[in-house]
Design a binder for these strands. Structure first.
Length: 640
RNA sequence: GCUGAUGUGGCUCAGUAGGUAGAGCAGCUCACUCGUAAUGAGCAGGUCGCCGGUUCGAAUCCGGCCAUCAGCUCCA
């Protein structure tokens, strides 16, 4: 007999070789139905896998993230089985579960068509109805390779060969389908209830563009039809927040065939930008920054010196002026450096913090352009900090605090942090990289912030801390970043005069808070679904007279608001109130001020807030004071 | 850049046996003067992404290019 400790601490006895499923039967029928896998001593197990000794056993269901992963992973095996049946010549690559679903990569001669997806779905349905058990077996490396080779699964052979020495090599079989897999899986294919294949895409083998491109099928699955429906509905709802759609609907910005990746900002989009810039400038002055502006075009020779030519020229645009080669800046740093170098600096001045709202141009691959999120010209809210080595950590901490203040307090964003280390193609010695990376890590540790390490993702001149925000579909975008750079100061022989009267090398920090105004505005738009906080709203109040005879009063109200510095519009069109209100609602105008007989008589306006609705009549001056207060404090209220 | 899909008036979309385009919304005009999410009537608006080919004839078939969308790679 072995002792099984359950989640609630209860200990039960079972004969050796008992399976988690059998243990579940002893607990309750609902658990038997809902359990997808077991956690045995903290490791995920199949429900069918016999236990050989005393163990702590917990069950995972679809309510657990791990359960979802198991469920989706099994779904991907079902899909692979279906694909193998319909396209026997195809080779299997990998098929993991991901957030909200799963995918599988196949190497097929001809790419799949949407009609193929339907056929695959039908086949999957048949496999599910057959309720085939998932059976696990282990093989030695030699046997595993032999099995994969015999099946013609070249990618699997490669995967097995790359497994670490001590790895347990396991396979899972359901019906006539066998796949290399660490598991675990749900007990049988019948456990997959509702699924849908969502999209088709190309994906390079092992994510390397030098490798062959495989066909990837994305899908998702849920234990209940209603959950699947709910997911698809949420997806549709999320798309309504898409900044590309709202950009057109709210007349904020647009991109055209005439300039792919080069966005146009409309008057209302410019209001957003200008408000963001104004806020940015206020905060940076408070934090001891000075503002500069460097030219957009500079000699190519500068970029050769900075290392951009060597490391970044594929992304740069070039031009010729008077028979000389020039480059259009993809980054602002060399400009900032030239400015720093324009005179001598004392240690007493450091740190020098030079901010620049710099317009940069980068040649991005056509396939990656995405509304305002990924463009070919954008404005970085850049700054370059020149400091003494012992000031580095404090400066980094200061920047982190500013990012936190912006993201959390002002905009109410959720975000996560990544620390990106030395890339393959990098400048400078390992020792300097080490020092720079430690400085960044040290600041994060000091602030006690959680972060994930992103190996090899740093800039070519230094490691970085990235702040990542999410769009309407949960895709993450890098916005803020802090980069620690010991290379440029060397390259450009930057110096300051120390206490000892000798020249010393400053450390340079590159950083952005918004990241790019364009991307940040895109994120803002999706985050608020276009219903911007009052201080950012392109139109803050719309004044609506009920009939012509209230027009004059309404116009006076509008003038008074404008005079008070509130962005107000007068809607004197010959339409019903309901119509004008609807329009203002659709345009997400935060306040509608309505004037009819009662209001004209009493010198009030009827206030309607876009999410709270009719708030009743209030004296105009009180409304103005209220709005101004919210605007000045940049009051944030999350819209549902 | 790669894989796949898509491309019809400002927006959303109809338009498959290939016979020179249609709706709703938006816009404009007129009437209605109206109390918190769409008043009614009328008018106007399209080289059917671009170029070429097949055909008596192409939005519809074929090819090339461009752009967009999803994903991959890459990145603020």
């Amino acid at each position: 007999m072995i002792q099984i400790t359950l989640k609630d601490g209860k200990v039960v006895e079972h004969p050796e070789g008992v399976t988690p499923l059998e243990i579940a039967r002893g607990i309750g029928s609902r658990l038997v139905k809902e359990a997808l896998a077991a956690k045995v001593n903290g490791r995920l197990y199949d429900l069918h896998r016999p236990l050989t000794g005393d163990a702590q056993v917990e069950f995972v269901t679809f309510d657990d993230e791990e359960g979802q992963l198991v469920y989706r992973h099994s779904s991907s095996h079902v899909m692979a089985q279906a694909v193998k049946k319909l396209f026997p010549e195809c080779k299997l690559a990998i098929g993991p579960a991901i957030k909200d679903g799963f995918y599988y990569d196949f190497d097929v001669l001809q790419s799949f068509t949407p009609e193929d997806l339907e056929k695959i779905e039908k086949e999957m349905q048949a496999i599910i109805e057959a309720d085939l058990p998932f059976e696990r077996f282990e093989l030695s490396r030699e046997d595993a390779i032999a099995l994969a080779r015999a099946a013609g699964e070249d990618y699997k052979v490669e995967l097995i060969e790359d497994l670490p020495e001590d790895a347990v090599i396991s396979f899972y079989r359901q019906g006539d389908f066998t796949d290399l897999c660490a598991g675990p899986h749900v007990p049988s294919t019948g456990r997959i209830r509702s699924f849908k294949l969502l999209s088709l895409a190309g994906a390079y083998w092992r994510g390397d563009e030098r490798n062959r491109m495989l066909q990837r099928i994305y899908g998702t699955s849920y234990p209940k039809q209603s959950m699947l429906k709910e997911y698809l509905f949420r997806l549709e709802e999320a798309k309504k927040r898409d900044h590309r759609r709202l950009g057109v609907e709210l007349d904020l910005y647009s991109v055209h065939d005439e300039g792919p990746g080069f966005p146009f900002f409309h008057p209302k989009g410019m209001v957003l930008r200008n408000e963001l810039e104004r806020f940015w400038r206020e905060e940076h002055v408070k934090q001891g920054y000075q503002e500069i502006r460097s030219p957009i075009i500079l000699r190519q020779e500068l970029w050769e010196r900075s290392g951009h030519w060597e490391h970044y020229k594929e992304n740069m645009y070039f031009t010729r002026i008077d028979e000389e080669n020039y480059a259009i800046k993809p980054m602002n740093c060399p400009g900032g450096i030239i400015l720093y170098q324009s005179r001598l600096h004392s240690y007493r001045e450091l740190p020098i913090r030079l901010g620049e709202l710099g317009l940069v141009h980068r040649h991005e691959l056509s396939g990656v352009l995405h509304g305002l999120m990924r463009v070919r010209c954008f404005t970085q809210d850049d700054a370059h900090l020149f400091c003494r080595p012992e000031q580095v950590e404090d400066e980094i901490v200061g920047i982190i605090e500013m990012v936190e203040y912006f993201y959390r307090n002002i905009f109410g964003f959720d975000y996560h942090i990544e620390l990106s280390t030395r890339p393959e193609k990098a400048m400078g010695s390992d020792a300097l990289w080490e020092t720079a990376t430690n400085a960044l890590r040290g600041a994060l540790e000091k602030k006690g912030l959680p972060y994930k390490v992103n190996e090899g993702d740093g800039a070519f001149y230094g490691p970085k801390i990235d702040f990542k925000l999410q769009d309407c579909l949960g895709r993450t975008w890098q916005c803020g970043t802090i980069q620690c750079d010991f290379q440029m100061p060397e390259k450009f022989d930057l110096t300051y005069v120390g206490e000892d009267g000798l020249k010393h090398r400053p450390v340079m920090l590159h950083r952005v808070v918004f990241g790019s105004l364009e991307r940040f505005i895109a994120i803002l738009t999706e985050h608020f679904a276009g219903a911007f906080p009052l201080w950012l709203a392109p139109v803050q109040a719309r004044v609506i007279p009920i009939t012509d005879r209230h027009a004059e009063y309404a116009r006076q109200v509008t003038d008074r608001l404008l005079e008070a510095g509130i962005r107000a519009e007068f809607d004197g069109r010959n339409e019903k109130v309901g119509y004008k209100i609807r329009e203002a609602q659709v345009q997400k105008v935060p306040y509608m001020l309505i004037a009819g007989d009662k209001e004209v008589e009493s010198g009030t306006v009827a206030v309607r807030e876009r999410s709270e609705g009719d708030l009743g009549a209030q004296p105009l001056e009180a409304v103005i004071a209220d709005l101004k207060g919210r605007i000045e404090t940049r009051y944030l209220r999350r819209e549902s």
